[in-house]
Simulated assay, not measured.
Amino acid sequence: MSVLDKYIPRLAVMPLTQLLEMNAVHLKIVNERKTRHGDYRPLPDGSHRITINANLNQYRFLVTLVHEIAHLVAFKKYGRAIKPHGVEWKHTFQHLMLPFLRPDIFPNDVLPLLARHFKNPTASSDTDAHLSVALKKYDAATDKNYIFELVQGAIFATDNGRKFQKGKKLRKRYECLEIESGKVYLFQPNVQVEVLKS
């Protein structure tokens, strides 16, 4: 419990500790990985390992941890043939997350967005632009901006160093021209980038 105290809201510690113990989970908190917030793996001895990035704010950490526990519980209940983010996982995630969707755990600006997100949860909370932006307010300050905050024509760099120019908005995503190749890529509005020239 003392480990989780550092990473999630206080009132979520006890129920989450019980969930981890009940499911024989080895929780590993790791340095930031750019491609994921967390992951789940069954271990050969019948136990389970969940890894979560240490740099997540307490609300994103909580959602990510429950997301990964939902994989474990769904696989145990329905078998390994299910899709990783299919209907069985969605129902399991909704069921496990429901007790935490409370104003004494999540802030008032995040709670309604979480409630909406959990009507049909996606593989990553980052694909829900409104929820992602609300959760980002609780991150440590960075020098990055969201794509949607940039003016059209702004030059920016992604985490891997590639440079792009922001183009027009389509329905939900933005067309961005890669400077080096001249190819056009689509970006979600809530991708965080480093502005090089606005």
Rank of each mutant, 00 (worst) to 15 (best):
R116T: 15
Q165M: 14
V195N: 04
N190M: 06
Y78T: 02
T64Y: 08
M14S: 13
E194F: 07
R162W: 00
V184K: 12
Q192E: 15
P42K: 10
Y138D: 05
P44S: 12
V73R: 02
N53Q: 01
V87C: 00
D143Y: 00
G182Q: 11
L101V: 12
Y59S: 04
F118G: 03
Y185E: 11
H117Q: 10
R36H: 11
V87R: 00
G167F: 07
E88H: 15
R33S: 09
H130T: 08
T122I: 07
Q18R: 12
T51S: 15
P84F: 02
L111C: 11
L62S: 03
D39C: 07
H130G: 03
P15D: 12
L186E: 12
W89T: 13
H85K: 10
R36D: 03
R36P: 01
V151K: 14
E149K: 09
R173M: 14
R162A: 11
K168W: 00
L96Y: 05
E180M: 12
P189S: 08
A134W: 03
Q188N: 14
L4N: 07
D104T: 13
P103Q: 12
D104G: 05
L150W: 04
S124A: 14
C176A: 13
L111T: 05
A157W: 02
F187V: 08
G46E: 01
V63M: 07
T35L: 06
F164P: 05
N145Y: 13
